[in-house]
Design a binder for these strands. Structure first.
Lengths: 219, 219
DNA sequence: CGTTGTGAAATGATTCACAGCT
DNA sequence: AGCTGTGAATCATTTCACAACG
């Protein structure tokens, strides 16, 4: 078994997903091995960085050879938790919520969106991509029944915190938040924020300077 | 004039947008002043962190008082470049592209989406939220004509790099990339990546551990 | 008093450089 | 030869702590 689990640096965790994305693309091309140098070049990282990141989780490299692609894909999926499927739901059937429902990359990664909710009675009951929009009152029942662990919040800022509270009460453990507010959650729940205005603002900032080239650590 | 402009830490730049978001909300409530401590509490940052971040750009605090809200909003907008409007375009009229077009938070922040393009002849010419979808061949002309500086790429991974190249040729200086690939761009263009699968994957990782509480530096 | 701005100290992340494996 | 894993060194960011100010 893996003894590891000290304290993984946050930047390392963010890069793990990028490694997996690259390696999966190599796997699709039937590449057998890849060195830390090659992987680093594709992501503008040093070879040492790549090795150190991966070494936090075990020793899956082969001296003289590099990393075996299929093996590394499997290890990374295990580390990230995507070796098994996750059920999720979307709260908010506005533009963004409806756009995410048919986003088929989620499926391919093992994220299954199994319900969509909305607080507006005029929207509840309508059909979105084959899913009937559910009222918020159905949330606790469906989260339990369908084993929903992740949720995407795509509601206006004003209601986001209340939605988060309901999700957490229902047993959700991870929230992807598109609302432009900081959610207050307790320690057992993790939150990832996607604020599209903030993202554009960052570009405006870079563009207002001479411009740095791309942010050294993107994503 | 501002003499500053040494080397702003990347994490500081990311937080700037969050400061602005909070302060704008305080402004809407007619709060007159805020201390670094109060601002930090709202974002789970230390007061020293807030002060140091802001001090990179000048001295807008008032000892004994804190920061004056309207003044700080103005300063932050100036720093981030959103004191003036930015024109942008969307490339890709799929689910995500179409969802972003009516996203009215962009408008309110001064980001004006003035065109949407798609490479698929079957989609070109159709109407999306009052905008006619344009063919890629119109891109260079419209970018110049409408002074488009920012672009959102919402096309499949395969075409993203080619789209980026065309945008940069046309004169765009910032790209928000929703495609799950790293874009190769030259130094004068900045790129921000939004990979939704990666975002969910990060949640799965946190959820697979005991779970750290929220990522210390979200966003 | 309360609160800023800022050097100095502490913590955290990245890069270097090399022993050791294949 | 080629490449990993890793301690040690460097570099970056955060926190501390306090003088100075309103």
């Amino acid at each position: 078994m893996k003894p590891a689990r000290d304290k993984i640096p946050t930047p390392t965790v963010r890069r793990l997903s990028l490694y997996l994305r690259e390696i999966e693309s190599l796997l699709a091309q039937n590449r057998l091995t890849v060195s830390s140098k090659q992987l680093g070049d594709r992501l503008s990282l040093t070879d040492a960085q790549v090795r150190k990141d991966l070494a936090y989780f075990g020793q899956f490299g082969h001296p003289g050879i590099g990393y075996r692609v299929p093996e590394l894909v499997e290890e990374l999926r295990k580390i990230l938790g995507t070796d098994r499927p996750w059920n999720g739901c979307i709260v908010g059937a506005g533009n963004i919520g409806r756009a995410l429902l048919p986003y088929n990359r989620f499926q391919r990664k093992g994220f299954h969106i199994v319900a969509i909710f909305d607080g507006d009675p005029k929207v509840v009951g309508t059909d979105v991509e084959g899913h009937k929009v559910r009222p918020m009152s159905d949330l606790p029942g469906l989260v339990a029944e369908r084993d929903i662990k992740l949720a995407i919040i795509a509601v206006p800022a004003e209601s986001a915190q209340s939605v988060a509270d309901q999700l957490i009460d229902a047993g959700v453990v991870g929230i992807l938040n598109f609302a432009p507010v900081r959610l207050d959650v307790h320690d057992k729940v993790s939150v990832g924020d996607v604020d599209l205005s903030v993202a554009l603002e960052q570009l405006a900032f870079q563009a207002s300077l001479g411009v740095t080239g791309s942010l050294d650590d993107r994503e």
